[in-house]
Amino acid sequence: MMTGNLFLSGAGQIAMAMLLAAMVMLLWRLAKGPGAADRVIALDLLSVLVVAFLVILSIHTGKSTYLDVAIAYACIAFLGTIALVRFIHKSGRKSGLHPPQSAPDSTKGGSDD
């Protein structure tokens, strides 16, 4: 019984270290990423990793309340990703950075949608 608890505690610490390493890598991609889409991918995966980290924390500290935080965070992070993607979609169309195939509208501040 005692060795089981020891094993679980060690495994939790190893898992947290791996997740932290993954988060640092994602921050690098977030800072460097060549395009906007790469940055959004990094942010999206980062939010999934935060949920995973909360779950590990809930096992490690023995407080199951962290799971509720994870549920709320999983819902809200999705909305953030969707909002960012919509923003990229619109700004790319408006700035003429990516030429539309049907008809070019180069008017700044014109009302599309």
């Binding site: 679980l8 495994a11 939790g12 190893i14 898992a15 947290m16 791996m18 997740l19 390493a21 993954a22 999934v48 990793l49 995973a52 590990i56 096992i59």
Partner: peptide, 9 residues
Amino acid sequence: LIIGSFFCL
């Protein structure tokens, strides 16, 4: 725990 966090990594 270890397998899951390995996949995240």
